[in-house]
Design a protein around this nucleic acid. Structure first.
Lengths: 293, 293
DNA sequence: AGGAATACCTGACTATAGTCAGTCATCATG
DNA sequence: CATGATGACTGACTATAGTCAGGTATTCCT
C-alpha cells in the first residue's frame, strides 16, 4: 500500500466527490425531492422497465413503486404494460415529463459548462482529457473477476457478444454451434469459467478446460469494447493459468484466429509461444502454448 | 459551449461522482448516521471550533448542536470553551472518539487502496496523476473573482499572506507599514480591490489605483500557492485592467521586485513593457506599463 | 396442471435530515 | 454601561428516505 498514491486518491475522493457531487445533486433537484428527480432522469425520453430502474438506482421495490405513483400523480410519468413478459411494467414520460426531463438535461449542460467556462482553452482540454482518463481507469479498477456457471445469464450474455463479435471479424464468419466445447467441461473440476463484471454488467469472460489426458486449454477469452485496453484480458488469463496450475496442469495451450491481433499480442506478452496445430478447429490459424510453473 | 467537452464533464460527473461518492459515504458511515460520521471525521484529532464546523459542513446551527450532543452522549466528543472568544466553543475528540476517528481514517485508506489495488503499476501512476490534474483544474474553475472592501477579513487575510511572502522572498525583507497606499485609494471610485475566493477561502487578490492626474496603477497582485499556475493571476489582472479602462484610464502601470520572476513573466505575457522608474518604492526594481484600448 | 418463482404493488412503519423560532451568554461599540 | 450583534443551544416541527410484511397477477418449470 503506497502512502503517496493512497493520499492522492483520498484527496480526490474528498474534494471532487463532495464539491462536484453536491453541486450535481442540487442542480438535479428542483423543488422536487432528489429521489424523484433521479428517477425521472433515469426513466429518460425512451422510457424504462421498472425492473431495470430498480437495479440501476438500487432501490427497494416498494419504495420505487411509491415514487412512481407520485410522479404519475404529478402527471409526469405513465406506467404501463411492457412488451413481452406481462409482469414487467414499463415507465414512460408523458409530454409534461419529457419537458421536465429536457429541463434537467439543460441544467446538467449548464453545470458542466460552468465548470469549463472559467478555464482557458488549454486548461479545458487538459481537464477533460484527465477526466476521461480517471473515468476509464476507475472503470478498470471496478472490474471484478470471479468464477461463474457457463449457464449463468451473465456468462450467456458474454458468449452471445463473443459470438457476435467473432462473426463480424472472421473472414469466413462464425457459427457458434460447432465450437465443440460442452458447458460441463467448464465446470469444476473439469474446468473453470470466469466472468469479469462491473457492478452487475458482464464485461468479459474466459474459460479453461482441464482434460485428464491433455494439457489445459484456454477457451472463450473475450473482453467487451467498453473496457478493452484496461488489462482485463490479462487479469482473466492470469487467473485461468493460476487455476490450471493449482489443478496440476503443467502447461496450457490455446488456439486463435488470425484476425484477433490484440489477443495474439496479449498471448505473446504473457509468455505464450506459437506451436504447431494441435486441433482441427476450422476457425483457428495460430496455436500457442505456455509452460506453467 | 462545446458539446464534446461538456459531454465528457457530464459523463465524469455522473459516473465518478456517484460511484465514488456512494462508496465513500458507505465506508464512512459504520452503524452511525452519515451526518454524525461526517461530523466526527471533520472534528479530527486536533479538534475544531463549532463555528468552523458549521461553515465547513454547511449545517444549520441547531442541527449541528444536536449532532454534537449525540456524539457527546456516545462519549466520543467533548465540547468545551475555546481559547479566546468566550462565545465560540471547541469540539474535541475523547480517547474513544480518537479511536473511532482512527478507524474511519483506516477505512478511508482501505477504500483508496481498493481502487488502486486491481491496477498495474503503470495504471496506478496514470490514475493518480490524472486525479491530481482533475483536482487542480477543478479548483481553478471554482475560483471566483469579485470586488471587495480592502478592510474585509478576506482582503486582510490576503494582504497578510502577501506581506509574509514578500518578507520571505525579498533580499532586504519587507515592511508592510511603508507600502504607501491607503485603503480608501482602493475603494470605488478612487480604485478597486478584488479578491479571488474558493468557496469561502481567499486565495488571491489584486488592486488598482485610479488617481485623477496619473495613469492607473496595479497594486498588491498576489496568488496563494494552492492555486498558483492556474491562471488566477491572469484573471485578476484582466479584471483590473477592464475596470481601469471602463473608468477612462488610457494606460496602466505597476512596479515589482526582481525576485518575483513569475509575476514578471505574467506581466510580459499580458502585454506589459518595461519602462523607466516612475516612483521611489524602495522594494521595486522593475517598472512596467501597458496601454489600454 | 400445479407449485415455485418473479415483478410489482399497498399499507404500516422507522430513521434520518433538516428547518425555524426563540433563549441565553458573551462580545464589540459608542 | 446600555445596545445591538454574534455564537451556541433547545424545543417543536416537517420532509425525505428507506424498510418490511403481506398480497396479486403472471410466468416458469416439470
Amino acid at each position: 500500500m503506497d502512502r503517496g498514491l493512497v493520499d492522492v486518491v483520498r484527496r480526490f475522493n474528498r474534494t471532487v466527490t463532495q464539491r462536484v457531487g453536491a453541486l450535481d445533486d442540487s442542480y438535479l433537484a428542483r423543488d422536487r425531492p432528489l429521489a424523484q428527480s433521479r428517477l425521472l432522469w433515469e426513466i429518460g425520453p425512451a422510457g424504462a422497465e421498472v425492473a431495470a430502474l430498480r437495479t440501476r438506482l438500487d432501490l427497494d421495490a416498494g419504495y420505487l413503486s411509491r415514487l412512481l405513483r407520485t410522479l404519475e400523480g404529478e402527471g409526469l410519468v405513465a406506467v404501463g404494460p411492457g412488451e413481452g413478459d406481462g409482469r414487467v411494467r414499463t415507465a414512460r414520460l408523458t409530454d409534461a415529463g419529457r419537458a421536465e426531463w429536457g429541463l434537467l438535461d439543460g441544467r446538467s449542460d449548464d453545470l458542466a459548462w460552468s465548470v469549463l467556462e472559467p478555464l482557458s482553452a488549454g486548461q479545458r482540454a487538459r481537464l477533460t482529457s484527465a477526466m476521461a482518463e480517471v473515468e476509464r481507469l476507475l472503470m478498470a479498477s471496478l472490474v471484478t473477476i470471479g468464477p461463474c456457471h457457463p449457464g449463468d445469464p451473465r456468462a450467456r450474455a458474454c458468449l452471445r457478444a463473443y459470438a457476435r463479435e467473432l462473426a463480424g471479424r472472421f473472414d469466413a464468419g462464425f457459427d457458434p454451434a460447432g465450437s465443440g466445447v460442452e458447458d460441463n467441461e467448464l465446470i469444476p473440476p473439469a474446468g473453470l469459467f470466469l466472468v469479469a463484471t462491473v457492478s452487475t454488467e458482464a464485461v468479459g469472460c474466459g474459460a479453461v478446460r482441464l482434460p485428464a489426458d491433455e494439457p489445459a486449454e484456454i477457451k472463450r477469452l473475450w473482453v467487451s469494447g467498453t473496457v478493452r485496453g484496461l488489462g482485463v484480458g490479462r487479469r482473466l488469463l492470469d487467473e485461468l493459468e493460476r487455476h490450471a496450475a493449482a489443478a496440476g496442469a503443467g502447461s496450457v495451450r490455446l488456439d486463435t484466429n488470425r484476425s484477433l491481433t490484440e489477443a495474439m499480442r496479449l498471448y505473446r506478452s504473457a509468455g505464450y509461444q506459437e506451436v504447431p496445430r494441435y486441433n482441427t478447429n476450422p476457425y483457428a490459424h495460430h496455436w500457442f502454448a505456455k509452460p506453467l510453473t
